[in-house]
């Protein structure tokens, strides 16, 4: 075989192999994994495959996280619906309450999602920690102000009602 021909042959094989792999990967990724994960609402509506491992994604519900040694229990939520999750193993650094996560596993008979792997999803916001703290404080102040306002309005209403009764 001449070197030129061998080169052509190698290229042809590489080409066919490359395109074949690309198409196969594409087919695999876009058929089964078009949705990398299901939301708790989709799971509640029965869209997730039964008797099949799948992924669930959402936020770790605030106040739902319970640690028991290496095992963690928490609720994953999309604010409309929540699904309880149990997982034993190492969690990524970013895992915390309020954080977006994706868990791989299956639903057991009592409707608990038994995860075999938990991945953290991070948001697309980048800022220094001081700014994040300042934002949090500002939010807290706003919330407090809103509460006082509501309380004042409530008090005013009671007063008006009292006045009306008198």
């Amino acid at each position: 075989m001449t070197p030129t021909r061998r080169r052509r042959l190698i290229f042809a094989v590489l080409l066919i192999g490359g395109i074949g792999t690309a198409v196969a990967l594409g087919a695999y990724a876009f058929r089964q994994n078009l949705f990398y994960f299901y939301s708790p609402t989709q799971v509640a509506e029965g869209d997730a495959p039964p008797n099949h491992p799948f992924r669930i994604g959402g936020l770790v519900e605030k106040g739902s996280l319970k640690r028991n040694g290496m095992t963690v229990h928490f609720m994953v939520t999309d604010t409309a619906k929540s699904v309880p999750v149990v997982y034993t193993g190492i969690l990524p650094d970013l895992f915390r309450e309020g954080q977006g996560i994706v868990a791989e596993g299956h639903l057991n008979r009592s409707g608990v999602f038994v995860a075999s792997r938990v991945l953290a999803k991070h948001d697309s916001t980048y800022m220094p920690p001081e700014v994040a703290r300042a934002l949090k404080r500002a939010h807290a102040r706003e919330a407090a102000a809103a509460r006082t306002k509501a309380a004042e309005a409530g008090a005013a209403r009671t007063k008006a009602a009292e006045a009306g009764a008198r």
Binding site: Y28, A29, F30, Y36, P92, L119, A120, H122
Partner: peptide, 16 residues
């Protein structure tokens, strides 16, 4: 790896 907890996943962005 350090943020998500994995080097690779077959999600639409990474695969494409």
């Amino acid at each position: 790896k350090p943020m998500w907890g994995t080097y690779w996943v077959w999600d639409a962005r990474l695969t494409s």
